Amino acid sequence: MKLTTVLALALATPGSALVRFHCSQLVVERLDPLVNPGMVPSAHVHQIVGGNAFNATMDPKADLPAESTCTSCQFEDDFSNYWTAVLYFKSRNGTYKRVPQLGNNQFEKANGGLTIYYMQDPIYESKQTSKVKAFQPGFRMFTGSVTARTLPEALPFRQLTYVCMDSWTQRSPETIAFPTRKCKSGIMTSIRFPTCWDGKNLDSPDHIAHMSYPETGTFESGGPCPTTHPVRVAQVMYEVIWDTTVFKDEEWPVDGSSPFVWSFGDGTGYANHGDYLFGWKGDALQKILDANCHFMTNCSKETGLKLQSIDAMNRCMQRPKVEEDVNGWLNALPGGYHAEYGHA
């Protein structure tokens, strides 16, 4: 889908925002309107947050704020949908159980979900000075590869990582494969989307081609965008906290290998991925990007955009449209998958 008018993003108003906020769990089920539109159930289990207009099929021309009655995100004007695959634990007896999620640091009372960032410059820089424009209605993207089982297959998708947390505040070291040791405070997955846009297409057949990583390095290194994707956009980043501490010692593999597997069978961790479907109301996101603010509270004060309470976020839930057990001890992952392992 193409914009009717090519946006002059290079002339966008300078912004200075770095916004961080949380979205509680909307639903956990096998639906994927991006990769498997109209398929009920979709290929594998996802955990979804955001506006409750989420469905098996989502028209790019739909007005998501108008079609939603609530959002599980803190900003009342954010009816976007953000989703990832679901992490499972494989017990030594070969059965699988979904790893529960926790609210991230400062959001402990949230019903699982994701922490979302929109960044214009590296997160460790206090001044966000780059010129970027908000995504437009109908914009969507995907990053990662569900088929990756080796390090070379994972490397084209930069900065999809894991942290084995020994405390709530730990954010390093990051790995591309699953941690193998027991993590005292759980595992954090981070999904950083590409930051260079072709300036024309709101989507592409694979939901990847209209976006690109910088020509060299990563978003944080400030590498230039390639000529094929000349427009620099804000980096969307997800953080997910998986509570791996709930599994008993006698359930872990005796050989010290990782017991974790994504809901589509990846037992290596290399196939970490995420989906994004833009749905902010009006110019709300642009107001944030143009503001001089950091994180949620300050950005709310600077823009006048309202924040929901965590209780209100937790109340925005959907009843699963696919009736199947995704939570109990299962002989196979929903969809019939079993753990697959590649080589480093």
Score class of each variant (00 low, 15 high):
Gly113Cys: 03
Tyr88Asp: 07
Thr228Cys: 10
Asn272His: 15
Ser309Val: 07
Asp311Arg: 11
Val86Glu: 15
Pro156Gly: 02
Leu285Thr: 07
Met1Trp: 02
Met119Cys: 00
Gly222Thr: 09
Thr161Arg: 08
Tyr213Lys: 10
Ala56Lys: 13
Leu155Gly: 10
Asp198Trp: 01
Lys306Cys: 07
Trp329Cys: 11
Asn272Pro: 09
Thr218Tyr: 01
Lys184His: 03
Asp283Asn: 15
Glu251Trp: 12
Phe135Trp: 14
Phe178Val: 05
Val146Phe: 07
Leu7Phe: 04
Ser145Thr: 08
Leu31Val: 15
Thr189Val: 10
Phe139Arg: 11
Lys127Val: 15
Asn104Met: 15
Thr218Val: 02
Pro224Asn: 12
Pro214Cys: 01
Asp63Cys: 11
Gly267His: 07
Asp243Asn: 15
Cys70Thr: 00
Ala284Met: 05
Met237Gly: 07
Asn55His: 12
Gly94Arg: 09
Pro226Glu: 10
Val19His: 06
Lys131Cys: 09
Pro100Gln: 08
Val27Asp: 03
Tyr238Trp: 10
Ala148Lys: 08
Thr218Gly: 01
Asp78Glu: 10
Cys196Thr: 02
Val254Cys: 06
Arg92Ser: 13
Thr195Ala: 03
Ser263Cys: 12
Thr303Asn: 12
Met119Asp: 02
Asp32Thr: 14
Ser16Lys: 12
Lys182Trp: 09
Gly103Asn: 11
Val146Arg: 12
Leu305Arg: 13
Cys293Phe: 01
Pro253Cys: 01
Phe89Pro: 14
Trp168Gly: 07
Cys299Lys: 00
Val261Asp: 04
Gly144Ile: 03
Asp32His: 12
His46Gly: 11
Asp325Gln: 13
Gly328Trp: 06
Phe219Gly: 00
Cys70Asp: 01
